[in-house]
Every structure is written in structure tokens, then in C-alpha cells.
Design a protein around this nucleic acid. Sequence first.
DNA 1: TTGGAGTCAATAGG
DNA 2: CCTATTGACTCCAA
Length: 388
Amino acid sequence: APESPLSSAEESVKSQQEEQMCRASIQEPSETSESQPGTPLPLPVPGHSGLSIQEMVAMSPELDTYAITKKVKEVLTDNNLGQRLFGESILGLTQGSVSDLLARPKPWHKLSLKGREPFVRMQLWLNDPRNVEKLMDMKRMEKKAYMKRRHSSIGESHSLETGLSGSDLTQGASPQNLSQQQQQQQQQPQLKKPRVVLAPEEKEALKRAYQQKPYPSPKTIEELASQLNLKTSTVINWFHNYRSRIRRELFIEEIQAAAGEGGSPSARPGKSGGEGDNSCDGTESDSTAEGRPSGSEERKGFLESPSLSHRDEEGEAEFPCASGTSRPRGGIIDSLFGIPESVSTAAAPPCRNPKDSSLRKKKAANLNNIIHRLEKAANRDEPHEWEF
DNA sequence: TTGGAGTCAATAGG
DNA sequence: CCTATTGACTCCAA
């Protein structure tokens, strides 16, 4: 098929200064089709036009992150490709990150340059259908290697191996000297880290505290920590993560509300609309209800996709973010990105859901954040009572 | 220092 | 195996 004007090379340089790549498993000595030896980097692909991804990200027109993830999910499931393989070889991310990204893509305009990178990579990947084949080849090879390994090394009952880094003894090769990066922990393969797991009641308590004060003072944090018998850092981390995740949920709602979801008017976040008074709020995820992977083909150059841009709903207060609500449109890149088939820009019956008490709560939390910022800006502490 | 954005990586379910 | 969740960590900017 004479499609894209793009050269489809693969593998190649991954510029980037520092950064920690994933070491661990690696299937480096892999050569699928005509991969060139060039870079040892396990990371992906700029490929085309010699531009680094970062450059492409910088020049990229606005992409519809929701549509991209939807398409990627569809392609992956249709072809039985896992997030791990896709993430490690195409995006340079771990499975968990991919899962998160696919399930809750942030809108393009709210992403930092770095955050846009995975989406650009996904779009690029989608642009050439042959990429799917390549991934499938990799999968096959991986499996083969795995089989070989477990077959040959039967004798050895390597009782325990270091948890990290799969690596193996395959032919050789790489003296791996990983180590480094995070953490002090050395010797003693055991005694890793307990991995704190908060009990449901602890989470409840923290959520309640959050609703009262999204940005607790150090003092409050100390109190909470001792009260719940948790490390201070755990409480701090919890608040960081919770705020961050709440924020993201809001983005999702924004996208869904604006983009209209597919199909039927039905299905929504499950859960009876009601939900008792306060109590858990939440992170109650109404996961994305994506349509079945029915092989519906839709196409459109996402380039022109701003059709879905939307935003600015009612109040929708925004923080000072980088919101470049502009549509760049670079001729050159157009050709790079605007390809034949790609993401679906599903136009869908807009359906606005006025209800959703959870949404309301999230908005409220968002407001709290904003208030906090304003207070801070006004140089006041205790964003609590501000009687005039 | 504090908070946000991105991620990692352990782990809980399928 | 695979995916989703989530505490912790790194980087960076204010």
C-alpha cells in the first residue's frame, strides 16, 4: 500500500540528556526485520525525518489525546498486544504508566512538553499500520526467547533471583551493573521495602481530611500522621497523589463532557446516581466505558481534529497553566502527522450529564484548590476562615 | 520548601 | 500471563 510519504524507519536515536531508562528486562539482541544496529537504546523511535521526538513534540499540532488512546486501546486489544510490550518498546514507559495513560489521558492543552511525548509517540505509531506487525513480531520473539530460557535452564533451579532486572544469562553480554538510581538500600536482597498499603479506613480518614483541607499545613499533617499512625512522609505523599489524581479526574470529565461519549446515551459511571451523603468520595472511578472493540474503522487526520476541541464549560476555573489554546498548524509537521488513517475523531452525540454528584464533589475540590492558591497569592496562611 | 507533573514498581485481581 | 491501582520518587518551577 502506497501510503504515507513517511519513511518508516525505526529505532534510532533517542536523544535526551539524562534520564534513567529502564534497564531490567531487555531484549536487546533482537533483530526483527531489518532493524539496524544503530542504537542500543531500548527506547523507541523517532524514525522519520531525523527529528527527535522532542522536536516533534514541540512542533506538534494539538492532538486529541482521548481519541488517540481510544484507538491505541482498540488496536492493542484487537491484536492481543499487551501494555507492557507496547509501553516498553514504543513509549519507553512501564506497564503501569501505560495503563494509567490509556485510561485517563489528560487533555492536550494541559500537558507539559514531557507529558505530550507519549501521545506523539502513540500518534506516530498509529500512523503506520505496519507498526502493529512489528510489535507482533516482537511479541513472538519474546515468547520464543522465554520458552527457550525456561526449557534450557531447567536444570538450574535458581531458587531465587534478584527481584529486579530479569536479565538472564543469555549469551552474553552485558555486564549489567545497574544499581544506582533511587535508593540507598543495598545488599540484602531481602528487606526491600514494605510498600505501605493504607487500610480503607485510613484512606477514608485522609479523604475526609482532604475535603476539609486539601492543603494541610505541616502541623496538620503531623497530626494526621500520628493519629493514623503513619509516617509523615506517607501522609504528605498521599496528599500529593490525591490532589494530583483528583485533578486528573476532573480533566477526564472535561474531556468526556465535551467530546461526548460514544454511542448510547446509556452507560455512565455505574453506581447508582445517588451515593449517600458524604462518605467516600472519590476516587470512585467511573472508568472509561469504552465501546467494545468492535472493529469499527474510523478515520480522519487528527490534524484537523480540533473539531473536538472544546473546553470552557460553565465556570471551569482554570489555574495558571500553560494553556496554549492555539492551533499551531505547521505545514511541515502537518505532513508528518497528518497521515492517512489514524485516529478516529468520533463525532458523537453530545450528551451532557448534569448530574453526577461525584463530579460536583470534584469540582468542589477543584475550587478548594483554587481558593488555596488565591489565598496563598494573597499571602495569607490558614486558608480557612477568612472573615473580612 | 512546596506543589505539580510524570513515572516507577509493587501488588492486587482476572 | 495481563491490567489497574497507588505509595513513593525525581525533576522542575515558583
